[in-house]
């Protein structure tokens, strides 16, 4: 398997008071196309920090993080933005939908940044909304949707540009069990159909049931890296 994400000796520290807090310490990891992997660990274990570095929202203090051939930390703000816009989709715990936009416009936004033509855009948006079962809500605003629906819009927004990687930070934390399973099934389906690599930062048992690979983090270090041969929910 050719890795699309390659992390070597990654260290990330944050200034705290007069000293530094080490969020990631000598992390080594390789992730390939089509993986459905979870970064699992307690709060403060460094999973979100690792996710942010992979998403080029943050940079390593030491070591190297290479994503789709780009060395994070050496990218300019423009290159970093282009990488996020074209190849990385984000799903957040609190959905982070743009409040004044409709469902359609929220999903459309990354495509507008890519300057895609209106026809191609519309087709892609409707397809993405179809994946998450929200074609009937395209004119609704986030305030008119339930939490589960909002997260499905976020999935559609992350997937509409057909990224190579989707980063999901605690995507089910604000959802009830039924909605959690619902969105995880959707993501799993997209992972299999489109071979998109999904990386989760989670400590939710419900999410772990769907993961094909689990990377356990503890105090900023990789404690275990396990492949799950038969995830419990693969329907």
């Amino acid at each position: 398997m050719q890795p699309i994400i390659s992390i070597n000796g990654l260290v990330k520290t944050f200034p705290v008071g007069n000293g530094f807090f080490c969020a990631l310490n000598d992390v080594n990891l390789k992730l390939g196309t089509g993986e459905f992997v979870g970064l699992v660990g307690p709060s403060g274990s460094g999973k979100t920090t690792l996710l942010n570095i992979i998403g080029s929202l943050d940079t390593p203090t030491e070591g190297k993080a290479e994503v789709l051939g780009h060395s994070i930390g050496e990218l300019t703000a423009k290159e970093s933005a282009a990488l996020r816009n074209k190849d990385i989709g984000f799903i957040f715990q609190s959905y982070n939908l743009l409040p004044v936009y409709t469902v359609y416009e929220n999903v459309e936004f990354p495509l507008l940044l890519q300057k895609m033509s209106a026809d191609t855009r519309r087709k892609a948006i409707m397809e993405a909304l179809d994946w998450v079962g929200l074609t009937n809500k395209e004119q609704s605003r986030p305030s008119q949707l339930s939490g589960g629906e909002c997260q499905r819009v976020a999935i559609a927004r992350a997937m509409v540009k057909r990224p190579a990687i989707v980063l999901a930070d605690e995507p089910s934390a604000n959802l009830d069990a039924k909605n959690s399973h619902n969105i995880l099934q959707t993501m799993r389906k997209l992972n299999e159909e489109l071979q998109t690599t999904f990386i989760f930062a989670t400590h939710d048992e419900k999410v772990m049931q769907y993961l094909k690979r689990i990377v356990y983090l503890q105090d900023g270090e990789v404690e275990r890296d396990e492949t799950v041969n038969q995830p419990n929910r693969n329907e």
Partner: peptide
């Protein structure tokens, strides 16, 4: 959050 989202979606 909105500012962060714009950046995450690909704006500098």
């Amino acid at each position: 959050k909105e500012i962060g989202t714009y950046v995450a979606l690909g704006m500098t």
